[in-house]
Measured scan of single mutants.
Amino acid sequence: RYRTTFTSYQLEELERAFQKTHYPDVFTREELAMRLDLTEARVQVWFQNRRAKWRK
């Protein structure tokens, strides 16, 4: 599977959502995914990776 490349707008929005909550529920993820034209799975994985980065 190829690596997803996020646009700067998508990253800004994902980071903004991350500032609000590190653990968005499925509705929040679905809403973000639709708004950013991504799949909910991509959003979920982004948050997993972002939390890992945050913990370091």
Rank of each mutant, 00 (worst) to 15 (best):
T28Q: 10
Q10M: 14
L38P: 02
R50H: 05
Y9P: 08
A33W: 00
E30S: 10
V26L: 10
L14H: 01
K53V: 15
R3Y: 09
F47N: 00
A41M: 09
E13C: 13
R29Y: 11
K20N: 05
N49W: 09
R51G: 03
R3K: 13
T5K: 05
F47K: 00
K53I: 05
E12I: 09
F27W: 03
K56L: 02
Q48W: 07
W54Q: 15
R55T: 10
L14Q: 00
T39Q: 12
T28P: 02
E30F: 07
S8Q: 12
L32M: 05
P24Y: 02
W46V: 02
A33C: 15
Q48L: 09
R42N: 15
Q10E: 11
E12T: 11
L36E: 01
R55K: 09
L36T: 08
A33Q: 09
R1T: 14
A33G: 10
R55S: 15
N49T: 14
A33E: 01
R51S: 04
D37H: 15
M34L: 14
A41D: 14
H22T: 09
K20Y: 08
Y2A: 15
R51A: 05
W46H: 02
V45E: 12
R50Y: 02
A41G: 13
R29E: 04
E12C: 07
Q10T: 02
R55F: 09
Y2F: 03
K20S: 12
E40M: 15
V26H: 15
R42M: 10
R35P: 00
R42T: 12
R35K: 13
Y23F: 05
E13T: 06
D37Y: 10
D25N: 11
W46T: 02
R29M: 15
L38Q: 03
Y23K: 04
Q19N: 08
K20E: 05
N49R: 07
V45D: 14
L38M: 11
H22N: 07
Y9T: 06
R50I: 01
L32S: 01
V26G: 12
T39H: 08
Q10V: 03
F47L: 04
T5Y: 13
K56A: 11
R55N: 13
E15W: 01
L32N: 00
F47W: 03
E13Y: 02
V45L: 12
Q19V: 09
T4Q: 04
Q44H: 11
